[in-house]
Amino acid sequence: MKPTLLILAAGMASRYGSMKQVDGFGPNGETIIDYSIYDAIKAGFGKISFIIREEFAEAFKAKFEPKLAGRVETDYVFQSYDLKPFGITEEIERAKPWGTAHAVLAARNQVNEPFCVINADDFYGYDAFEKMAKFLTTEVSDDTYSLIGYQVDRTLSDYGSVSRGVCQVEDGNMVAINERLKVYFKEDGSVAYEEDGQEFPLDPLTRVSMNFWGFTPAVFKQSEPMFKAFVEAKKADPKAEFFIPLVADGLIKTGEAAFKVIPTDAKWFGVTYKEDKPIVQKSISALVDSGVYPSNLWE
């Protein structure tokens, strides 16, 4: 059974058409999401599932169906504010949905095969998709999940600090993930992070999570009770979000699942600052020039 690629895109639709996620970065206006889908198809994924808000379904279909028809199966998962399907009857006022792990839970009735979760607006590189596809077809089990671990120095911006989930790895498995809110290059090219006004060095080869995870559908049952407990604890905080690393941390602590850290030396690109855009365009242009991608992805 071919694995499914689940793309976290519910956050991108609110200002559809004027956002970095649907901005053109390739030579023919290809978006970053186009490159992820292209790499996933090449790596052997059998279905692309977009997690979106329902009111943007038609706009998404109009954008992606013409390109993907005949190439790969597509599906749409709707992330909503309605908590009744989780047995939560209390009305809770929210300005935004409940975060990435809640988005994954939204797919629980539509995904029945091993799957990978990625962000819509991150450029991950083919190596990551190839390694994840191999893991999902040969190694994954209900108690063995994975994430792609990027070298921190291959994920930073030259234009300011970024937040990164820094992985603590033992025997190839993640034992903890620590959110570092200010990670940056120093003037001498070394990497550091700041916490409580203090600066700490960070080995440039340290593995970080860029939200590229591999699961079986068992994670839905494992994470649903965690989500209910989270909602109960955080219902008064309209900004609280239920993130995938919270689920990973919970499963590691209870021993329900291990998370293999699959290393990649691929360069991750993202547009954190507006100054990053020309760099991403240049990087993609170089990949096209060297033959990694065709100049027109979907011709």
Rank of each mutant, 00 (worst) to 15 (best):
L5W: 02
I7G: 03
L8T: 09
A10G: 06
M12E: 14
G17K: 13
G17T: 07
G17S: 10
K20E: 02
G26D: 01
P27N: 01
A40V: 08
A40H: 05
K42C: 02
A43E: 13
I52W: 11
R53T: 11
A57C: 14
E58W: 06
K61M: 12
E65S: 15
L68Q: 10
L68W: 03
R71H: 04
T74Q: 10
V77K: 01
V77E: 07
F78Y: 14
S80D: 15
K84W: 00
K84G: 09
K84R: 15
E90F: 02
E90I: 04
I92V: 13
R94N: 11
H102M: 07
A107T: 05
R108N: 07
N109R: 14
V111I: 15
E113C: 01
P114V: 01
F115Q: 08
C116T: 00
V117D: 08
I118Y: 02
I118C: 11
A120C: 08
A120N: 09
D122W: 00
F123H: 04
Y124M: 01
A128D: 00
A128Q: 03
K131R: 13
K131C: 03
K134A: 10
K134D: 11
T137V: 06
D142Y: 02
T144I: 05
Y145R: 00
S146G: 09
L147D: 00
D153K: 13
R154G: 06
R154E: 12
D158F: 05
S161Y: 14
V162Y: 05
Q168I: 06
N173D: 14
N173W: 12
M174E: 12
M174D: 09
R180G: 04
K182L: 08
V183L: 04
F185R: 10
K186C: 13
S190Q: 04
V191E: 02
E195F: 07
G197W: 03
D203R: 06
P204G: 01
L205S: 13
R207D: 03
W213H: 07
W213E: 01
A218R: 13
V219P: 13
F220L: 08
P225A: 02
M226F: 14
A236H: 09
A236E: 14
P238G: 04
F243H: 14
P245D: 06
A248S: 13
D249I: 00
G250K: 11
A258P: 08
P263A: 10
K267N: 06
V271T: 15
V271W: 07
T272K: 14
K277H: 11
K282D: 12
I284S: 05
I284C: 05
S285I: 00
S295P: 07
N296G: 07
W298M: 07
E299A: 12
